[in-house]
Design a protein around this nucleic acid. Structure first.
Lengths: 97, 97
DNA sequence: TATATTTGACCAAATTAAGTCAAGTCAAAA
DNA sequence: TTTTGACTTGACTTAATTTGGTCAAATATA
């Protein structure tokens, strides 16, 4: 589940149009279309609006949003999974300090 | 092991000074100091020079370099590990397509 | 046909990258 | 104990990239 998919899911479940959600977010509908298909990422502030509007966990949205950023960074790398493992070790190691 | 630590390790093992390695990389020694302590990241091209100079696996350097970028992105997040898991799922999912 | 969505090309503003320089620290040598 | 050499740090700069969009045209979809 990507942040874009989640937003689309929330929007469609409530029968909202892109145009309408775009209006709430104060962006154009073309931009929202790209957000839903993960071609662009929205800014973090938008998560607040979406969270309130659909009464959906902010924290979960934030996790998806961050995961999407990580994904973007390594999606084209063959070693993507290995890279994540190394990063994870680093985080776990730091916690022991 | 971070990319900075690895570079420092390689440099010290050969008794090289920061000033000398910095010269090879064509940067200032203050900058190299920051790279070794992960305050700055070097550009990818520098990995080639380092790989050749110390005869150390380019691929491994690249993994550390990427991991460092991922780490930078989420290091301050409480949910860092969870975020990595979500990103990992995304990568694995995409592979099945 | 009309309405909803997608896409590609483009843009300005904000952010990050990629450094530098000067001053400071720190350990060891003189 | 002063000096020296290696390294670190903070403040700053400039250029490149990314972000956060828009608009018009193309494509579904009903």
């Amino acid at each position: 589940m990507t942040i874009g998919q989640k937003i689309r899911e929330l929007r469609e479940k409530t029968g909202m149009l892109q145009r309408e959600l775009a209006y709430e977010l104060e962006v154009g509908d073309a931009y929202l279309s790209k957000i839903e298909s993960n071609q662009k990422n929205l800014k973090k502030e938008h998560l607040t609006t979406i969270s309130k509007l659909f009464k959906y966990s902010y924290s979960e949205l934030e996790t998806l949003w961050l995961a999407n950023k990580v994904y973007d960074l390594i999606k084209d790398e063959k070693k993507a999974i290995e890279v994540l493992k190394v990063a994870e070790q680093e985080i776990k190691y730091r916690k022991t300090l």
